[in-house]
């Protein structure tokens, strides 16, 4: 199967407060439709790696190729547009816009993409919310929801543009076991039915066990 993502010789250092190399010569590739989990102790560099791959961090050495396109060195705006269409990201902490309703939060990336009409976008957004079991909260302000509900809305937002790649920084970290299970099933279905690729950073061995492949990081190097 073709590779959807390739990481080539990624190196990253923090200089503040002291010079510290977070990532050391990271190279790996991810196949299309793969459900991959990144594990490692805190400080191992797994979240940093994920942010590099997601193009939200542009300060690194090496190359990131997604869908055959070299993303390293592209302008911020070009990367934003790329993320908009091809990458859905779920943060560890939900990060919704508090002034907007849940539905609007989910709709915004699609409105930016401007590929469908507003009515279609709304329909799609409702489907995603339905999928994650928070459709009944759609018209509430995002700030009015519980942490778990907000996290699920954030996952719906990541799915709205049907991205090729979905990345999550502990996407189920704020969820109870029932909902965590549910999300994992959703992710599984996305990979098998729609051949979307999922890369998730996780601490949870249970969650990792259910994925296709586990990459384990330690001190900025891939150990497994």
């Amino acid at each position: 199967m073709e590779n959807v993502l390739e990481a080539i010789n990624l190196n990253k250092s923090f200089t503040d407060p002291v010079e510290f190399q977070v990532l050391k010569n990271i190279s790996f590739s991810v196949r299309k439709g793969e459900f991959l989990s990144l594990m490692g102790k805190s400080g191992s560099g797994k979240s940093t790696l994920l942010y590099l791959l997601s193009t939200m961090d542009t300060v690194y050495d090496g190359q990131v190729v997604i869908n055959g396109q070299l993303l390293t060195g592209m302008t911020q705006d070009a990367l934003s547009a790329f993320r908009n269409e091809h990458i859905g990201f779920v943060f560890q902490f939900h990060f919704l816009l508090p002034e907007f309703s849940c539905l609007e939060n989910v709709m915004l990336p699609a409105m930016k993409l401007n590929k469908w009409s507003n009515r279609e976008i709304e329909k799609k957004a409702m489907e995603k919310l339905e999928l994650l079991g928070v459709a009944d909260q759609a018209h509430k302000l995002a700030s009015r929801l519980s942490g778990g509900q907000q996290q699920r809305v954030a996952i719906a937002r990541a799915l709205i543009n049907d991205p090729a790649l979905i990345m999550g920084d502990e996407p189920t970290g704020n969820l109870d076991s029932h909902n965590s299970q549910n999300v994992q099933e959703i992710f599984r279905e996305l990979t098998t039915r729609y051949h979307q690729t999922i890369i998730a950073v996780t601490h949870d061995p249970e969650f990792a066990k259910g994925t296709d492949r586990i990459i384990e990081l330690s001190d900025g190097e891939i150990v497994k």
Binding site: M56, Q76, R83, F91, F95, N161
Partner: peptide
Amino acid sequence: AILKATGFAGS
């Protein structure tokens, strides 16, 4: 940052 993460450009 959230807007940019979800695909909005700097402009």
